[in-house]
Design a protein around this nucleic acid. Structure first.
Length: 247
DNA sequence: TAGGCCATCTGGTCCT
DNA sequence: AGGACCAGATGGCCTA
């Protein structure tokens, strides 16, 4: 996963720094050249302020050109590191429930992190809630079945199996491709409009009728599912924003 | 114009 | 020794 430093720029107005190719058009480098014209590099100025400059003996032995090469190399690595970091931040933005588009201002880094945290907390609590609901529903059903139990091998499921069965749809609904873009999907296909906080089609009354959990829909990984559980969760973007965009 | 956000440079520190 | 990571400094861009 070696990202090209020149391929990512999280800010459109930022200077295009294709590291080696366009580095010499950078304003910083222009200032650097100005310093060189006066016979002093920026690092040399700084090192004058700090006495020896903290250079190792090996670095002290290097010629001026070698030091510059070294400095450029280090700068390039640092730039690439920050580009990778920004790329990861963009990836995070892509999966956040936040309106995206050319007319929408990009979330700041701090906002992205805060929103991500709150979103994870919200998903966690949703998952717990759904587990509880589904468990209750299946528990009630198994009790009613046992009251009028007919001994058929296929209908007699142990409680542990019922628990697992009850978890499957809820897990599917949370990680399914209709509710959240998967990791592999995110960079290439935009998340659904409802997920991003754009006006979404009216939801079927999710969980209003718990019996729909036993619907006959089969869930296949990666395949769209028509069951009501797999419809997008209400993208309560406003509430998320109230949590994260306090300032 | 002030303040927020960002990219970049730089030196220090830690790790392999 | 070299690279990754981090934080401080600096300057540019944008918006209220």
């Amino acid at each position: 996963m070696d990202s090209d430093a020149s391929s990512t720029c999280s800010r459109s107005s930022s200077p295009e720094l294709a590291v080696d190719s366009s580095f010499f058009s950078n304003k910083v480098f222009q200032a650097y050249c100005t310093d060189r014209e006066t016979g002093q590099s920026r690092s040399e100025k700084l090192s004058q302020n700090t006495g020896s400059g903290g250079k190792s003996p090996a670095q002290a032995d290097l010629s001026k050109d070698d030091l510059q090469d070294l400095r450029l190399k280090v700068n390039s690595r640092e730039r690439k590191r920050m580009h990778d970091l920004n790329q990861a931040m963009d990836g995070l933005r892509e999966v956040m429930p936040y309106a995206q588009g050319p007319s929408v201002r990009k979330l700041s880094k701090i906002s992205t992190l805060l929103l991500a945290r709150n979103y994870i907390l919200m998903l966690s609590s949703s998952l717990e809630e759904m587990k509880k609901l589904v468990g209750d529903v299946y528990g009630a059903r198994s009790q009613s079945h046992s009251a009028r139990r007919v001994l058929q091998p296929t209908s007699a499921a142990p409680a542990s199996q019922l628990q697992l069965l009850s978890l499957a749809p809820s897990l599917h609904s949370l990680v399914g491709n209709n509710t959240m873009p998967t990791v592999g999907q995110a960079p290439h296909s935009p998340p659904t409009a409802g997920y991003l906080g754009f006006p979404a089609p009216p939801l079927p009354s999710l969980l209003k009728d718990p019996m729909h959990l036993s619907s006959g829909y089969r869930h296949f990984p990666g395949m769209p599912c028509p069951c009501s559980l797999c419809q997008p969760l209400p993208a309560s973007t406003a509430s998320l924003h109230s949590l994260s965009m306090g300032k």
